[in-house]
Simulated scan of single mutants.
Amino acid sequence: MANEPATKLAVLIDADNAQPTIAEALLAEVAKYGTAHVKRAYGDWTSTHLKGWKEQLLTQSIQPIQQFGYTSGKNATDSAMIIDAMDLLYSGRFDGFCIVSSDSDFTRLAARIRESGLIVYGFGERKTPDPFVAACDKFIYTDILIAKPDEEQPLKPRSAAQLKQDSGLAHLLRNAVEAASDDDGWAGLGGVGSIITKQRPNFDARSYGYGKLSELMTATTLFEMDRRSPGDGRPKVIYVRNKSKKPAVRE
């Protein structure tokens, strides 16, 4: 509904562990999920290796949080970011957090935030350890975000044959449709996407070269797609069904 309040998000960036080139695309992606009421980047800003971030701080209105590296080999930045996250969590002012890092040290933080009933979006490189990915409600790989519209796509769309050969993908999609389906096998695409994300937080249609889940599922040729109008001038809703699913016999 148009009058529903926007999801309030806190965006916390581990600048020691994230590239400044992702900043603009990162915040554009965050905007899909809610409004960033807090945008903070953590690091030792007296260090020269963060100079690439300084322009982004001004351009994207990100607040730098200074944390000196007191001891060699110890990451004081992580500790400062975790302490701030808990303070923001206890304030009760936010609906969710965006944690930008590829560091497994934030695994327990993500789990703790979720235990409080808030949503956690993780952003990191593909080297991000699986425990941190699994601890988030949704995890987005940053290499997917940095491709510009006027440039060649970083991943060429996979063909139907290639998608079908990916047994893990086919199994994931089919099971999600089955879990969300009615007696006739039809399932709303929104429900299907929700189930997929719960099972695999790092799932992203863009990893296969497609901008949307509907485009990916159509490309597999494994599903029937149906666009239905709910009426009242609202946009059409996409429903999907496994092609192998036979409608229930009605007496």
Rank of each mutant, 00 (worst) to 15 (best):
F68L: 07
N17S: 04
S159L: 12
A28M: 08
T77L: 04
I62D: 01
G52N: 04
T220W: 06
L145Q: 07
K198Q: 13
R114C: 06
F132Q: 06
S79G: 00
L50G: 06
F223C: 12
K54C: 01
S229W: 04
Q66D: 00
W53V: 06
D16F: 06
M1H: 12
R228G: 03
A31R: 07
A31K: 09
Y121E: 05
A28W: 02
L88M: 15
S79M: 13
G43T: 04
R227N: 09
T197E: 03
T21C: 00
K156R: 09
T128M: 03
F203H: 07
T128V: 06
A36H: 04
A160R: 14
I238H: 00
S102W: 06
D184M: 15
L173W: 00
I146K: 01
I82N: 01
G96K: 05
T71Q: 12
R126G: 09
S104I: 13
I238E: 06
N75C: 01
D14F: 00
I99C: 00
W186E: 13
A31P: 02
L169F: 02
L9A: 01
F123P: 03
T197P: 00
T46S: 14
Y141S: 03
E251P: 10
G117I: 13
R227W: 10
F223D: 09
L57C: 13
S244F: 12
Q60K: 05
L109H: 06
L145V: 11
P131C: 05
F106I: 07
H171E: 13
L27V: 08
T142V: 14
S244D: 15
S229M: 05
R206G: 11
L173I: 07
Y210T: 08
L50S: 11
M225H: 12
E178Q: 15
K138Q: 09
E115Q: 15
D226M: 12
Q199F: 03
R206T: 15
P247Q: 14
Q63V: 14
A176Y: 00
Q153I: 13
R108C: 02
C98W: 02
G69V: 11
M217E: 08
V120D: 09
A179G: 03
I119N: 08
P131F: 10
T21W: 00
G117C: 11
R206H: 07
S79Y: 04
E215L: 13
R93N: 15
I195D: 12
F68R: 02
Y70R: 08
A111G: 05
D14N: 04
R174F: 08
D87N: 11
Q19H: 13
D184S: 15
A28N: 09
I22T: 09
A80F: 02
S72C: 05
Q19G: 02
V192T: 07
H49T: 11
L50D: 02
R228H: 04
P154H: 03
W45S: 07
I113H: 06
G191Q: 12
K54N: 02
M86E: 10
A36D: 10
L88T: 13
E55D: 15
R126F: 01
D103Y: 03
K127A: 11
S181P: 08
Y90R: 09
W186D: 14
Y42N: 06
T21H: 04
G193N: 10
I119F: 07
T77M: 01
